[in-house]
Computed example of a mutant assay.
Amino acid sequence: MTGAARRRVTQQDIARMTGVSQATVSLVLNGRAEDSVKLSAETRERVLRAIAETGYVADPIARRLAARHNRILGVFTYEPVFPSANSDFYHPFLVGIEQQAEQLGCDLLLLTSAPVVDGQRRIFHQDNRLRLADGSILLGRSLDRSDLARLLAEEVPFVSIGRRDDAGGPVPSVGADYPAAVAVLVRRAVELGHERLAYLGQGAGPESWADRMRGFRTAVAGAGVTGVHYPTREPSGTPAEATEPGPDLAAALDAALAAGVTAVLAEEHADGVALHELARSRGVRLSIATLGEPTRAAPATETEFTSLRIPRQAMGAQAVEVLMAVIEGTPGPRQRLLPCEVVPGTTLIERGI
């Protein structure tokens, strides 16, 4: 019989060769003999010798099932992440997830069969395949509260990338510490002489926006300066398609100048860039900082903006770590906030210059 045609050795073969049961072979393979059955040293040695002589290789799927884990992690995205203009924002998260999963010897399953209901993907549907994975990582700007509540109620292991509010219980998550980072920018603006600051953005809705606004309001109050809010509207179309600035930037600039605002913190990078270009076209010097990575196309510019760099790759990697802890029931925090890096840039300048 040639090597190519050689039949794969099984546990049953090992059992027949050594005169023991297949269950005994399995116990020896999985190192559980001392816990389950008192095997003699001779029996154990006989089985191990047969394994070595035959070159037996355990079926990895069977071993995973015996351990009650497939070592498969699901990734569910509420929004399209590729291929699209939006993919640049999500790409570092996916890189972090993939690299950490590889280090832990896990495979990834991208859950793409979810139907779109009322404009949003939904995890739970008739043919959902969540249970194929040991647990899942959820990725998206807005996560459905009912999905989160059901995952918690049914004790389905999962972790959210991005801090999430309570959904019937603590939500395992890895997020960015936006309040602390925004507070750093506010204090920096105050040190540069700015006494009237504006927040340009929705400041509500998804936790990432609400957290930025909370950081702004707390820091402004703590510094004893004035803070105003110019809300924006969502661009039309899906997040992947939306490329036009959300707010009426001309009206926002007029209102800011009339109110004596000298520094603006823009929730969306594209809006901050567009506002900066508009102010410059009018000959107005306005300090601007943006509060994160671009999620939609921004006007072309060579200006290096004062901004926040979100630790997206680290968030993806640590989401895998938290998910494995949830799956295996190991101790440790189930909610993490990672610091954002403040990029100095050139657009947050001294007042009056």
Rank of each mutant, 00 (worst) to 15 (best):
T18N: 05
V25H: 05
L27R: 12
S36I: 11
L39G: 11
R6P: 06
A23G: 10
R16V: 08
T10I: 06
D35C: 01
T43Q: 09
D13A: 13
L39H: 09
A15W: 04
R6H: 11
T43A: 12
Q12P: 00
S40P: 09
V20A: 08
Q12W: 02
R7T: 14
T10Y: 02
R32Y: 03
D35I: 06
D13F: 01
T43S: 15
K38R: 15
S40R: 14
T43C: 07
S36V: 14
L27H: 13
E42C: 03
V37Y: 06
D35M: 11
Q11S: 06
R6W: 03
T10K: 04
A33Q: 13
V25R: 02
V20C: 11
R6L: 13
T10Q: 08
Q22F: 01
K38Q: 13
T18F: 05
Q11N: 04
G19A: 03
R16H: 10
A23C: 02
R16K: 11
R32S: 08
R6I: 03
S40A: 13
T24I: 10
Q22I: 08
G19Y: 00
L39M: 12
T18Q: 07
G19V: 03
V25N: 07
D35V: 10
V28A: 06
A23T: 10
T10P: 11
L39R: 07
S26P: 01
D35Q: 15
E34F: 00
G19Q: 05
Q12V: 13
L39N: 07
E34A: 15
G31N: 09
L29I: 13
S21C: 04
R32D: 02
N30W: 01
D13G: 02
A23S: 13
R44I: 06
T24G: 10
Q12K: 07
R44Y: 06
T24K: 08
R6G: 09
E42D: 15
S26G: 12
T24Q: 10
R32E: 09
E34I: 00
A41V: 14
A41S: 15
A33P: 04
R16C: 00
E42T: 10
R7H: 13
E42R: 14
L27M: 15
G19M: 05
R8M: 10
G31E: 10
E34K: 12
D13R: 12
G31Q: 09
Q12D: 10
L39W: 06
A41E: 15
R16T: 09
V9A: 13
G19W: 02
E34W: 00
K38W: 00
K38C: 00
R16F: 00
D35H: 11
L27K: 05
I14P: 08
V20R: 09
A15S: 09
V9S: 10
R7A: 15
T10H: 02
A23N: 01
Q11I: 10
A23K: 04
E34R: 14
V37T: 12
A15M: 10
T18E: 06
A15I: 07
T43D: 04
R16G: 03
A33N: 00
A23R: 02
N30D: 05
M17W: 10
K38N: 08
N30R: 03
S40C: 11
K38L: 05
V9F: 07
Q11H: 01
A23P: 01
L29R: 07
L27G: 04
T10S: 12
